[in-house]
Computed example of a mutant assay.
Amino acid sequence: MKTILNVIWLVFGGFWLALSYFLAGIVCCILIITIPWGIASFRIAGYALWPFGRTVVDKPGGTGIASTLGNIIWILVAGIWIVISHVTTAVAMALTIIGIPLAIANIKMIPISLMPLGKEIVPSNRPFVSSYH
Score class of each variant (00 low, 15 high):
36 P>F: 01
92 A>I: 12
129 V>G: 10
77 V>C: 14
114 L>R: 07
24 A>D: 07
114 L>W: 10
129 V>Q: 15
114 L>P: 05
67 S>K: 06
5 L>N: 04
103 A>H: 00
83 V>R: 01
17 L>V: 14
43 R>I: 10
15 F>Q: 09
98 I>P: 03
122 V>W: 12
55 T>Y: 08
74 W>E: 07
68 T>H: 12
96 T>E: 03
45 A>H: 08
89 T>W: 01
9 W>E: 00
31 L>K: 11
38 G>R: 02
70 G>I: 00
72 I>K: 11
109 M>T: 07
80 I>V: 14
117 L>N: 00
23 L>H: 13
116 P>M: 08
78 A>I: 08
131 S>V: 15
113 S>K: 07
101 P>K: 06
7 V>P: 04
59 K>N: 12
113 S>N: 08
122 V>H: 08
6 N>R: 04
128 F>M: 13
1 M>P: 12
6 N>G: 00
9 W>M: 02
102 L>Q: 00
74 W>V: 07
91 V>K: 02
46 G>W: 03
82 I>H: 04
54 R>C: 05
40 A>I: 09
39 I>A: 13
87 V>Y: 06
24 A>M: 12
28 C>S: 09
17 L>H: 08
117 L>I: 06
1 M>Q: 10
132 Y>P: 03
122 V>L: 15
22 F>C: 14
85 S>M: 08
113 S>C: 14
31 L>N: 10
52 F>C: 02
94 A>Q: 04
106 N>F: 07
47 Y>V: 13
84 I>C: 08
115 M>Q: 10
25 G>E: 01
108 K>T: 02
89 T>A: 14
75 I>C: 12
100 I>V: 10
128 F>N: 15
41 S>D: 12
115 M>S: 10
91 V>C: 02
96 T>M: 00
88 T>H: 09
30 I>N: 01
64 G>H: 13
99 G>N: 02
17 L>S: 10
29 C>K: 08
107 I>T: 11
99 G>C: 01
82 I>N: 01
129 V>K: 15
99 G>Q: 01
85 S>G: 09
29 C>L: 13
4 I>P: 05
70 G>T: 04
128 F>H: 13
121 I>K: 13
118 G>E: 04
55 T>F: 03
40 A>L: 13
45 A>C: 09
117 L>C: 07
53 G>S: 00
10 L>G: 06
33 I>R: 07
1 M>C: 09
105 A>W: 01
99 G>A: 00
118 G>H: 10
89 T>N: 04
96 T>F: 02
91 V>F: 01
71 N>M: 08
18 A>I: 08
9 W>G: 02
8 I>L: 03
126 R>K: 14
129 V>L: 13
61 G>Q: 08
6 N>T: 05
94 A>V: 00
81 W>R: 07
103 A>L: 02
40 A>N: 11
6 N>W: 05
44 I>E: 06
78 A>L: 13
93 M>V: 04
6 N>D: 00
2 K>T: 01
35 I>D: 05
19 L>Q: 11
13 G>K: 06
60 P>D: 12
106 N>R: 09
111 P>M: 14
115 M>H: 05
101 P>I: 01
17 L>Q: 14
26 I>W: 05
17 L>A: 09
42 F>H: 05
